[in-house]
């Protein structure tokens, strides 16, 4: 049990630290991420600039943290929207069933038949390149996934004896769903959520790398990597920071999801 707790705490703390410095970058990064300084172009990492500077002399440490704010906001925001929309669809389908389930699930299947990244690229390109539209595109990609997961979990719960007992006792279906089914499906949903945030973070970075996410001069991890790829031979530190932080964040989220599953579902131990 102690091992499981450790596996839960370590990635959780790592992710929280990344989120903390990203949403409150002023705590550690004192320079303006947009400040151009011709005298500091491509400065190597050092005491003056912890992660060095880019080709416009902008401080990379500051850009990395402010970029994290954009990347994490898009990932968390899109997953929150997807969870809300997909959750409503999944519960409706699972609890009501019938033609509503049949119809909505075919629409969900339609979206699931496209590769997630390709669908995100198509939607972001169609909506226009900016961070808000990238979040909308990601929400559209992930809503069907949540709908599927939540529907399956809801159907499993509805078929259990306690739901029949509630119905016999005259508890309304909506009340039973809200008070009893929802708490019982929280385990698969929370695990799915952590995995979805990690994947959304990767896709957001991909979109920004391709110029379909946040627009310059606003930084995001993907856009910093994109700007730095031409400098890979001359100034490798430009891509190093965002690449490492992106990997660490995604890894911590996946580990957190795994540990959550183990803690919340004793059968998986």
């Amino acid at each position: 049990m102690r091992g499981i707790r450790l596996r839960l705490i370590v990635p959780g703390v790592v992710f929280l630290c990344v989120a903390l410095v990203s949403f409150f970058p002023g705590l550690v990064a004192k320079r303006d991420p947009l400040e151009i300084d011709a005298a500091r172009v491509l400065t190597e990492p050092g005491s003056d600039a912890w992660l060095g500077t880019d080709r416009l002399g902008r401080d990379l440490f500051s850009r990395l943290l402010h970029g994290g704010q954009v990347s994490l906001s898009v990932a968390l925001g899109s997953v929150a929207i997807a969870l809300a929309v997909g959750g409503v669809i999944g519960i409706l389908c699972g609890a009501i069933g019938g033609k509503v389930d049949l119809l909505l699930m075919r629409v969900v299947d339609l979206f699931l038949s496209f590769p997630a990244f390709l669908l995100a690229i198509t939607l972001a390109a169609a909506l226009g390149p900016n961070a808000r539209n990238a979040a909308i595109a990601l929400a559209i990609v992930y809503a069907p996934i949540f709908a599927r997961v939540i529907r399956s979990a809801t159907i499993a719960e509805v078929s259990k004896g306690y739901c029949e007992a509630l119905e016999t006792l005259g508890v309304s279906r909506s009340k039973a769903t809200w008070r009893h089914i929802l708490p019982n499906i929280s385990t698969p949903v929370s695990v799915q959520t952590t995995a979805a945030v990690a994947q959304a973070l990767l896709i957001e970075s991909g979109l920004s790398f391709l110029g379909l996410g946040s627009q310059p001069p606003t930084a995001s991890w993907g856009s910093i990597i994109s700007e730095g790829r031409v400098l890979l031979e001359l100034a490798p530190w430009v891509v190093l920071g965002p690449s490492v932080l992106l990997s660490v964040t995604v890894l911590s989220l996946f580990l957190l999801g795994d540990s959550l599953r183990e803690v919340l579902d004793p059968r998986s131990r």
């Binding site: 947009l34 400040e35 151009i36 416009l56 390149p129 110029g211 627009q215 310059p216 001069p217």
Partner: peptide, 23 residues
């Protein structure tokens, strides 16, 4: 153009003009 745009945005910001880059 892509390289010059953020520099111009930064310079315009110093005189109080907020410019948003559209690629």
């Amino acid at each position: 153009q892509v390289a010059a745009a953020p520099i111009i945005v930064s310079q315009l910001a110093k005189v109080g003009i907020t410019a948003r880059i559209v690629t």
